[in-house]
Amino acid sequence: MNNQAVESEMSSYVGKLLRDHFGKGPSSVYVTLKGSMFSIHLREFLAPMERVLLKQERGSKVEESRDILMEEILPEMKAMIRIQCGVPVQEIFYDWSLENRSGIIIGTVDVQQKDTVYEDYDHRKAIHEEIATISRIAERQPDRIDSFYMNDRTLVIIRSGILVRIEQELIKEGYVEQLKLTKRKLEKGLLHQRDFKQWLGQPIEDIYVDWDFDSDRSYIVFVTTKK
């Protein structure tokens, strides 16, 4: 299958999988395959019970329950994307924008190349400098920052080497969920405070953040509004 056919197949499968496990699926599932990664942008994804919890300002409970469900279905998602769509998935990461009823799923693909060459784009250096500043405030200067556009609206930023000693110890002690929820709130708050529109050229619709604690990597995803 060509990329467009694979993206369509993945969109259909992921939408059904989420609907089967969450009781309500997203209204739209937009998939992009590019190089060694794929992104899946979900729109209008909020179950009735989650809506009630948000009204009660219990968004952390929604995130916790979603994390439990996602950890349960991720092995199935990886296996079925490989079997049905022919995409050899290595890892999958995700985050939500509950206020916008949206979400992102990004994954790494097993490709026969050791180093990915990222295409350059306007204001890349300035964006990296701003990400480095935010990282220093939240934890420490990343050892490395990479970024690339998945499509004309989705910018993926990968930070490597950002965990500080106290975070590493919390992970060893099993406080992964608490650490992730705390870091998400802190970093997304800092990211929203900065004016990335001046470099991205469009207003930001959503910001997502997730971590691969085992490999000490972080994924930040900006989704801008349509041009």
Rank of each mutant, 00 (worst) to 15 (best):
E169L: 14
S215L: 13
R165G: 03
I131W: 00
N100S: 11
K188H: 07
Q84N: 11
M49T: 03
A126W: 00
I81N: 02
V176K: 13
D152Y: 06
L18M: 02
I68S: 07
M80K: 12
M80W: 03
R43C: 07
A132W: 08
S160T: 12
V14Q: 00
V109T: 08
N2M: 09
G59W: 00
Y149R: 13
S28M: 06
D120F: 00
L190G: 00
R66G: 03
I137M: 10
S102M: 10
V31K: 01
M77K: 01
Y149G: 05
D122I: 11
K183T: 02
T133L: 14
E76G: 04
K55L: 14
K183E: 12
T182A: 07
L191D: 00
L163Q: 15
E130A: 10
V176I: 15
K172R: 11
Q202Y: 11
E91S: 07
E91T: 06
N2V: 05
M10L: 04
R217C: 05
T224F: 05
D206I: 04
D210N: 13
L190N: 01
R19M: 07
Q56E: 15
T133W: 10
H128A: 12
N100R: 15
P26L: 13
I171P: 04
R66I: 01
A5G: 01
E72Q: 13
K55M: 15
L54P: 04
K172G: 00
E44I: 04
I134P: 02
K114F: 02
Q112P: 04
M77R: 01
V6Y: 02
L98W: 02
S11C: 12
G35D: 15
D20C: 01
D95I: 02
K16S: 14
L74V: 11
R184K: 09
I134S: 01
R159G: 09
P26V: 12
V109P: 04
Q90R: 12
L200N: 06
R184A: 00
T154I: 05
E76D: 12
G25E: 08
D210I: 03
R51F: 09
E139H: 13
I68D: 07
R194F: 02
Q56G: 05
P26F: 07
E44Q: 09
D206C: 15
T108R: 10
S8N: 13
G59I: 00
G189L: 03
M150F: 09
V6Q: 15
K78H: 03
L74K: 08
E71H: 12
P48F: 09
R136D: 03
L54W: 04
I162L: 12
G189D: 03
